[in-house]
Nucleic acid binder design. Structure first.
Lengths: 341, 341
DNA sequence: TTGTAGGCGTTATCAG
DNA sequence: CTGATAACGCCTACAA
């Protein structure tokens, strides 16, 4: 078990000084040709690689990005993460990922763990509890220390930082309008507790689309479902409201609702059509295929990573402050068989 | 923008030495009560936290675990990751995750990035290309340096290290036997290229179950599908082989096949029954619900993390060598409506 | 009870 | 062209 070799080891073996070795390996012009060659050959032979930790300590940046998301077994977050990882890796950064599990406390603990030098910046989506409590002191803590932060999807106006969001309101407006155009009038909305900014935005799009098309909003057609998968309310909701279309703020709700409708012998999409947010595996493989809103998580992730890394690297070079930006990713509607074209 | 405070800062402010501060914060008996109180109060006030990087450099371990998996948008890997993250976090470790994307080169690059001091050990599942090439020099490189490694699911006998695997052969045997017991005789197997150890193991279970039950293996009933989702072959496969059951080595193949069968008007499970590996969202929400093999990814992840952390921490304390272990997680069959009970 | 010094591995500045 | 020295932030054996 050959231990990792250090500059010091090379210096000792070659009977030169540590700094000579360091410079030789960087091909510094200060070092003589033969010394350089000797050192480089030796280093290659013993597979020398600088110790990341020591470099980090010296340079005061780690080339690590911290990502904190509410859940990993979740198509959308997974794709965002993939985008982050892809961009980060191709730019020499590693990704440390923590899962808040929708818990405020875990989010705080994770941030503290990482904020003590382990990472150069954060990319995160707020946990449900954090949005509920509306307490962002841990984020402020971090930004006050000058650690760059990029929020995506689940964001808040309370914190000044870079953000990447979806055009939730607009795309929902489009989707609802599409349903109306296809002749639907009694369109149900399946949503989550409204402390989620995304649910609020989607509901706004829903309401506006209806009124823009001369349909008044019937509050009975809006069903708020709890966090966990308690879906018993969907059956009666369909039965009692003369519904002819359902828009759901996530894939699971949509698939559930469609299954329940099919179980009642209701024809999809003729009698009830369905659209769900998140164009994941479920939407693709449902039968009939579920028309859905593609959130382009990969793209959001790449943008978030780019914003963060750009900021990190700018701050290294210059002292000029970059203003915070909010990038909006445009969702798209993926048409399948659960809606009338 | 208040920068992070260091021991040196505290020492300067309080006009004591750095080591006094260091000891005081650790409640060392060497330090006088009032000095300790003064230092601790000051540290709390300014929210002092030791710099992880400096501690890592000093202690020569980072409290980071490197995880390398082939894919993240994949139910099974996601659950394993969740298990790893959960165990690691509760033991003060962070998780750095890299995605090999089934590519040998990416796997190598990622390992090299992390092996230079960033992590205390690796947990990984081999990429498809790595299993195909059968080249594990990058793993050996790492283990030779004394970096602990735990392989899970996609493993190899070529490398001596801790491993966590599923009882693939056995559970497949059980599942096939179950199908036979329910009256099925022409049982098809949908599998992937056999360089994956898991596919090989599952096929072995399939073959053994048939012969154990007096059914000879018909090679026409084994369909090998490529990596990507090329599924055109499934239709003819069903048509031409008088098939009455299908076992698939993953969820997607199973769902695809079931959809194709349903499209042909074939009754599930009476005419053809289905079982798929991976008890993910798709299996749960398919209609009919897909009977599937739960791989208990969370559990595999926790075990892998425990094995790794135990080894890392043992090596710090003592010099005794812990022998390598292979833990076997027992899968279970989740019965749904795609099979006859 | 407190402080000094050396070191973890690297880099950068400055002197020779 | 090469080397000594200091520094990044922390820890600890040893000295005072």
């Amino acid at each position: 078990m050959r231990r990792k070799i250090t500059l010091k080891d090379i210096a000792r073996e070659l009977e030169v000084s540590i700094s000579t070795v360091s410079k030789a390996l960087k091909n510094s012009a200060e070092i003589g040709r033969d010394t350089k060659e000797k050192v480089q050959a030796f280093a290659k032979l013993y597979n020398y690689k600088p110790n990341n930790i020591a470099v980090s300590l010296k340079n005061k940046h780690t080339k690590n990005i911290g990502v904190i998301i509410p859940d990993i077994v979740h198509y959308f977050f997974t794709t965002v993460f993939r985008g982050i990882e892809k961009y980060a890796n191709s730019h020499g950064y590693n990704v440390i990922i923590c899962v808040s599990d929708e818990s405020f406390d875990k989010e705080v603990i994770n941030m503290e763990m990482l904020a003590n030098g382990s990472i150069d910046g954060f990319i995160m989506a707020l946990s449900g509890e954090t949005q509920l409590k509306n307490d962002f002191s841990h984020l402020r803590e971090v930004t006050d220390q000058g650690i760059p932060l990029v929020l995506f999807d689940r964001v808040t106006d309370e914190i000044q930082c870079d953000k990447v969001i979806l055009n939730d309101t607009e795309i929902t407006h489009q989707a609802i309008t599409k349903m109306i155009k296809s002749g639907k009038r009694r369109i149900g909305l399946l949503t989550t507790e409204n402390f989620f900014n995304v649910s609020t935005d989607r509901e706004a799009g829903y309401r506006k689309a209806l009124t823009d098309n001369g349909i008044s909003v019937d509050e009975n057609l809006i069903l708020t479902l709890p966090f966990n998968e308690e879906i018993d309310a969907i059956g009666p909701f369909i039965d009692n409201n003369d519904i002819d279309a359902i828009f759901a703020v996530n894939e699971i709700f949509a698939i559930h609702a469609m299954g329940i409708a099919q179980g009642k012998g209701i024809k999809v999409p003729e009698e009830i059509s369905f659209i769900g947010f998140t164009d994941g595996w479920l939407s693709r493989y449902a039968s009939p295929g579920l028309t859905s809103i593609a959130q382009h998580g990969d793209q959001m992730g790449e943008i978030a990573a780019k914003m963060l890394i750009d900021r990190v690297e700018e701050e290294l070079k210059s002292e000029i402050e970059i203003p915070f930006r909010t990038e909006i990713v445009k969702a798209s509607i993926v048409e399948r068989e659960s809606t009338i074209n």
